[in-house]
């Protein structure tokens, strides 16, 4: 695998303002610090995992990268091109060109497919928008895509409600692949599926990557699937990255206390392994008033006085491992 970065995220910030309805004007009463200064890069052909609990800003990060939400600050580069600048330029041609390169697979295959379109319409809609496949070849391409994701030809004429969750997710993947993207952002693609179906979709994603050299940004809260599919993993807590490392390195030597707690919390399907579980006290604080200093210190079993005052930086421990924790 080359070390050539495809996606670079620099100091990405996304805040949402919380307003109340005043008499005439909306009044701002607070700011949700959904994403607060992220730095990471995703290399070509790899699967980069973004892990964290609900509300930590994983999905917001993905949405900001694709400019589904404009960032508050910071930059996103895709193959060296400034994504934010392109989207802001309102140059439709350029925007479409960029959209073709980056695609999204949504979490919930029940909500992300239009119930009134047949699978053929759904998968062929990108051809109409991007016009990258000549009209005569569109049907051939459709059947190719269906085969690719393990669906049959006769499925093309059916509607989403006729499919099971796993099959719907296959349709979503086929739709994303229709534009031949270079980066696929998969936002919890298996979270709503049954265990026996999960393995099918994960294997499919792996296969597609090997065949087409697609880069994945894989977002999940489930560390066991992350371990299975990702090459590198970033752990997020309350809008910040706390640790980035190669998958094996992260799972074998987790350094950040949050990563350790997260890993020890996963139930292991083996009754003979008894893990000493680190149970974190309390819950994730509100991102409206995040704690000062290190955001994890109120729940951290190893907190020191400095943690409350100074925010730790994400620093290299070794070439494969970065962590944001006071030594």
């Amino acid at each position: 695998m080359s070390k050539e970065p495809v996606l670079e995220v620099e100091n990405l910030v996304k805040h949402f303002s919380v307003t109340t309805r005043g008499i005439l004007l909306k009044k701002q009463v607070g700011v949700v610090h959904a994403v607060d200064g992220l730095n990471f890069s995703v290399n070509k052909g790899e699967t980069f995992g973004l892990v964290g609990e609900s509300g930590c800003g994983k999905t917001t990060t993905a949405r900001v990268i694709l400019y589904l939400e404009p960032p508050t600050a910071g930059e996103v580069y895709f193959e060296g091109e400034d994504v934010t600048k392109t989207f802001k330029s309102k140059n439709k041609k350029e925007i479409l060109k960029l959209r073709r390169k980056m695609q999204y697979v949504f979490q919930n295959p029940y909500a992300s497919l239009d119930p009134r379109m047949t699978v053929a319409d759904i998968i062929m809609e990108p051809f109409i928008i991007h016009e990258h496949v000549p009209k005569k070849k569109r049907h051939d391409r459709l059947y190719e895509l269906l085969e690719l994701v393990g669906l049959e030809d006769y499925h093309a004429e059916r509607y989403p409600h006729e499919f099971s969750g796993g099959q719907r997710q296959r349709v979503c993947i086929a739709r994303s692949l229709a534009v031949e993207p270079r980066l696929l952002i998969a936002d919890e693609p298996v979270a709503s599926l049954d265990v026996s179906i999960r393995a099918q979709i994960l294997n499919l994603l792996k296969e597609l990557q090997q065949n087409f050299k697609i880069t994945y940004l894989y977002i999940s809260h489930d560390l066991s699937t992350v371990r299975h599919i990702c090459h590198r993993v970033a752990v997020m807590y309350l809008g910040k990255l706390v640790e980035i490392a190669d998958t094996d390195e992260l799972f074998d030597f987790p350094l950040h206390p949050y990563t350790r707690a997260l890993m020890s919390a996963i139930p292991i399907p083996d009754p003979r392994t008894k893990v000493s579980r680190i149970i974190l006290p309390g819950e994730v604080p509100s991102p409206i008033n995040p704690p000062s200093g290190c955001r994890f210190y109120p729940r951290c079993p190893q907190a020191k006085p400095i943690c409350k005052e100074k925010e730790p930086e994400l620093l290299d421990v070794n070439p494969k491992h970065m962590v944001a924790c006071h030594p």
Partner: peptide, 24 residues
């Protein structure tokens, strides 16, 4: 058996997950 092999295991790394074909 199928249930046990289809679940990704944190400690055991497999190249490919065993799949239960078909659906419920």
């Amino acid at each position: 058996e199928a249930l046990l092999t289809a679940v990704p295991h944190l400690a055991i790394k497999r190249e490919k997950l065993a799949v239960i074909p078909g659906t419920i």
